[in-house]
Write a protein that binds this DNA or RNA. Structure first.
Lengths: 184, 184
DNA sequence: CATTTATGTCAGCCATGTTGACATATTCGA
DNA sequence: TCGAATATGTCAACATGGCTGACATAAATG
């Protein structure tokens, strides 16, 4: 459980910047948060990007691999629903992931029209490697910011469109259940 | 200061999911945080996307407009450095923003090779409209998650690559100073 | 058996990133 | 003062990953 750099709230940024008066328009624009979100996300996806270059994969491959890893035997239609892309877009990257042996398809048992997707051992290894990089970033950020993991979860959750939150929670819960079930 | 929905920690997601044993590999992958970050960012940039459609602009236009708005009279080279794209990529969207009257260029006073960029009134209005949308999302998220704004700032800041943090802080501070100086 | 569903695929377009090469104007240092 | 360095623009070509529209196939379903 040893962590890279446990020191709460060292060298924090600005944040005493807003509220000079009573604007009629409402709230002061939160430029600081907006820009921090932009840079944070860029670095968050940057880690995996470097690894993916090894296989000539891009971010699209990462997303597909990740969600197939998290939802073994997922139907194509459900994957499209998570990613919010078209099947033509999915087809391109999925084909490459299958050709290179990271993902495999099997015919559905109950409904033989379905092509259920799952990661191979190779795919699992890569998905885990990428998840670990991002996990380390979160662990660092939580430790160094003096936040709790729970606060971070609640904050990010509340950044999601209210009407989609339930779906997201359900999806994550279900994936956790499925994965724990498998690994036992 | 009245907010949309002030209720701390209502309907929070899971988060009691990790730590089943002592893996030799280290930490449990933080799937929940990883996926929440993905969905949060998608919605975060989704708000502006809809508005930008009105002008046939994309996210690239948004980024350029935003940072030019925040850094009046910015040099092209400095803008490229913030965005981390090539000048050829910038040129395309910048041309459209200039043609449609959102941004204008002026020759540098001290160095006449420079083409200093600034938003027009029209550009400022659009930049503010977009920033306001994202500000509202943050205000909602902070109120509903029971976090403080300061915690959110520190957390996002700590998500950035350590070696880039100083630059980001400096950039934000400087932009705040420049904008406040102008509005007085 | 006709229709609906799940998936695949072809073709082409668009947005936004890239590299490489080269042009122009201006500044700056020897 | 002149040659090199700098700031910017531009042309051409390419890659990635979105999109729409059209159509094909196999299987399920009423």
């Amino acid at each position: 459980m040893a962590d890279i750099n446990v020191s709460p709230a060292q060298r924090r940024p600005l944040s005493g910047t807003a509220a000079s008066g009573t604007e009629p328009a409402g709230r002061e624009p939160a430029y600081e948060l907006i820009e921090l979100m932009f840079f944070a996300y860029r670095d968050f996806v940057g880690d995996p990007d470097h690894v993916l270059e090894r296989y000539q994969f891009g971010r699209a491959h990462h997303r597909v691999l990740h969600f197939v890893f998290r939802h073994p035997e997922i139907r194509v239609a459900d994957l499209l629903d998570i990613l919010k892309i078209t099947k033509q877009s999915l087809a391109r990257v999925l084909k490459e992931l299958i050709d290179q042996g990271f993902i495999l398809q099997k015919e559905g048992q109950v409904d033989r029209r379905q092509r259920l997707l799952a990661v191979t051992d190779k795919g699992k290894a890569l998905a885990l490697e990428l998840a670990k990089l991002q996990t380390e970033r979160f662990a660092r950020a939580i430790a160094q910011s003096g936040t709790t993991r729970d606060q971070a979860v609640r904050f990010l959750y509340a950044m999601i469109d209210p009407e989609r939150r339930e779906d997201v929670t359900r999806m994550i819960t279900q994936a956790d259940r499925a994965l724990r079930g498998k690994e036992r």
